[in-house]
């Protein structure tokens, strides 16, 4: 199982704050998970095509090649704007 979280504008665009996905061997990195999510059709495809989105794996900022394995928590969110 994978826990996938979405925040802020992305959460609103998708109408989804959290998903539990069955983990599969081909979902082995951030880029692969993103591609699988984009296949859900609109609004997923367009919202996830945003190059500025940040990914985090187990609450640490990740890049496209960061590995993912079963039990991980993966988050996608827009650039941060705190402070």
């Amino acid at each position: 199982m994978l826990r996938v979280l979405f925040f802020a504008r992305l959460r609103e665009q998708l109408g989804c704050e959290a998903l539990d996905l069955k983990w599969a061997p081909e979902v082995n990195c951030v880029a692969a998970l993103r591609a699988v999510l984009a296949q859900r059709g609109e609004p997923w495809q367009q919202a996830l095509a945003d190059d500025n989105l940040v990914a985090a794996v187990n609450q640490v900022v990740a890049d496209a090649a960061t590995p993912i394995s079963s039990g991980d928590e993966v988050a996608f969110f827009p650039p941060v704007t705190g402070g």
């Binding site: 985090a56 650039p79 941060v80 704007t81 705190g82 402070g83």
Partner: peptide, 26 residues
């Protein structure tokens, strides 16, 4: 600390005004 927080800490601002609400851009 402030410069790092602004660019690294996961917080997101949404502004509310007379014209409605908008997400703040980085």
């Amino acid at each position: 600390i402030m410069d790092a927080l602004k660019t690294r800490a996961p917080f997101w601002k949404k502004e509310y005004g007379p014209a409605g609400s908008t997400w703040v851009e980085s």
